[in-house]
């Protein structure tokens, strides 16, 4: 809030300078507005308008014919009713839930462990930490392609390693077996997310003063006790933000699944995002695709609400 006060002081000064010339003040207000005008137009055209359009489409029977003729019959809530009658609705929702929870749980645990490790001072620590960022920066289509090759049943290196180590006796059809497909895409998504969580945790850890660790070790606390009683409580705000961002990001994941399994086999790795795409761009029922898209918006907004409330507090 002190920043706001400061701004008002500055602006107050400026206002008093330009007071005699009212026309100038007005001109200045217009110039100032021009600074944010492009952003406002962009947000209106690329977010507000499509979201409203999507809502309307979800109430229409929008098909390829509609694309050609430009109009679609209004069907009320029929798209939503049909969707909720499909067994795929609950399947895709469950898959999304499993995908989100599985991804986040492991991303956060591994990311935190790595952040703690790389917080210690040793030669090449920064260099090694930087290398780990690479998975997060690769195009997701590339990541999906790479893991599709690694998970390949007959020639993939993962099955080879597991067989050599005698962990498994027959090659696993990671991406083609209904029991394994979702797990495989979750593993891939964990790999992508670890660096992001690690970076955020690492910067959070730097904020914790060393004195706290020194004091607690004088009190006889071991590393584990320090972690539980010093690190975790002080890292709670960062942890909350990481969890929230990971949640919102994971709900949006599309590319990895689309390239690795396409939601298959038999929809066992179909999550809401891939399903929405499939409905629109493969089944050509844009109305239903829009409806699933809207359900996703509602879920995201639900979690954004908590995120916003949290960032406002801190």
């Amino acid at each position: 809030m002190s920043q706001n006060n400061l701004t008002s002081v500055v602006v107050g000064n400026r206002a008093s300078i330009s007071k005699p010339r009212l026309g100038l003040a007005r001109k200045r207000a217009i110039i100032r507005f021009l600074f944010i005008l492009p952003t406002l137009i962009f947000l209106a055209a690329m977010f507000v308008f499509p979201i409203i359009y999507n809502m309307i489409m979800s109430l229409e029977n929008y098909t390829t014919i509609s694309i050609a003729t430009g109009n679609a019959p209004f069907v009320g809530l029929q798209n939503y009713i049909q969707l909720f009658q499909m067994p795929l609705m609950s399947q895709a929702t469950w898959n999304t839930l499993e995908f989100v929870i599985g991804s986040i749980l492991f991303q956060v645990i591994i990311g935190m462990a790595m952040a703690l490790f790389f917080k210690r001072d040793f030669p090449f620590s920064t260099f090694l930490r930087t290398l780990i960022l690479l998975p997060w920066l690769l195009p997701l289509i590339v990541t999906g392609t790479i893991f599709k090759w690694i998970f390949d049943q007959s020639h993939g290196v993962l099955n080879y390693i597991l067989m050599q180590l005698h962990i498994i006796h027959a090659p696993i059809g990671w991406l083609i077996s209904p029991n394994m497909a979702l797990i495989s895409v979750i593993i891939t998504n964990i790999w992508v997310g670890i660096p992001f969580d690690m970076v955020l945790f690492h910067s959070g850890l730097q904020q914790i003063p060393d004195e706290l660790y020194e004091a607690s070790s004088l009190d006889g606390a071991n590393r584990w006790q320090q972690f539980i009683h010093v690190t975790i409580p002080l890292l709670r705000p960062v942890l909350a933000i990481v969890l929230m961002l990971a949640l919102i990001y994971t709900l949006k994941v599309f590319d990895i699944i689309q390239v690795m399994t396409g939601g298959g086999p038999a929809n066992t790795s179909q999550i809401l995002s891939t399903w929405s795409y499939t409905l629109s761009f493969q089944d050509m029922s844009f109305g239903q695709g829009a409806a699933v898209g809207n359900i996703m918006i509602v879920i995201s907004l639900f979690f954004s609400y908590f995120y916003l409330r949290f960032t406002k507090e801190s």
Partner: peptide, 10 residues
């Protein structure tokens, strides 16, 4: 936070 899939459709 708006999923790109939802925007993409419209």
């Amino acid at each position: 936070m708006i999923p790109s899939v939802s925007l993409d459709n419209a």
